[in-house]
């Protein structure tokens, strides 16, 4: 974070000098007055200079985009990051060469990256963002796969009259399974185990 502490005869002077040092304008900074200063007697005795701390405001979403780009660079030279912001939900989409490396097996690398970006973005900020990191439509494709898998395994559970246990998945993927089978009268779904081994169990009714 870029910040300077500056002093001046008045608060205004101090801020001005800080802005010059940072080479920026007043609307792009946060100003914290440390000491208002005192004029002193006849401007001679007991005069105290005003001290301010000026910090450049950073947009956390921009920071996170940069972070993703920098990390992605280690996988492949040209990875583009597109950002979509929908209120508190920030959606990052990666595209480029060798994107499969960034997704990883069952999206595990992508999920790890998503987790790191979320931690970074929400660190030290009051508001909480929801973060999705996607790569060339992977999340959509995964959703379709999971929907098909869910209906297939529900049929299987009914046929063999036994519980069918799925492999461990992150919460947002389990949610897809639960919602697909919500209206299915023949089965019931629950989640079992503790993170990171929590998994869906499909029970025939």
């Amino acid at each position: 974070m870029k910040q300077v502490t500056a002093s001046g005869q008045t608060v205004k002077d101090a801020v001005q000098s800080a802005l010059e040092q940072l080479n920026t304008t007043e609307d792009q900074v946060n100003i914290e007055v440390i000491d208002e200063g005192k004029k002193g007697m006849f401007g001679l005795f007991g005069a105290k200079r005003a001290i301010v701390k000026v910090t450049i405001k950073v947009d956390p979403v921009n920071q996170a985009t940069l972070y993703l780009k920098e990390v992605a660079r280690f996988f492949s030279e040209d990875v583009a990051v597109r950002v979509k912001r929908d209120g508190k939900h920030i959606y990052f989409d990666l595209s480029g060469e060798k994107i499969a490396m960034i997704i990883g097996k069952r999206g595990q690398t992508l999920n790890a990256l998503q987790h790191l970006v979320r931690v970074m973005l929400n660190r030290g900020s009051q508001e909480r963002f929801r973060v999705t990191v996607d790569a060339e439509g992977y999340r959509d494709r995964r959703q379709q796969t999971l929907e098909q898998l869910a209906s297939r395994l529900a049929d299987k559970a009914v046929k063999i009259k036994r519980n069918v246990t799925l492999e461990p998945m992150p919460s947002f993927e389990r949610k897809i399974i639960h919602s697909v089978l919500q209206d299915n009268q023949k089965v019931e779904t629950t989640s079992d185990g503790t993170e990171p081994n929590r998994h869906v169990v499909i029970k025939p009714l």
């Binding site: 990390v71 490396m101 690398t109 999920n111 790890a112 990256l113 987790h115 790191l116 990171p196």
Partner: peptide, 11 residues
């Protein structure tokens, strides 16, 4: 977080 860092680094 440690797990996520490792996943990305190993990948």
């Amino acid at each position: 977080i440690a797990k996520s860092i490792r996943t990305v680094v190993y990948a």
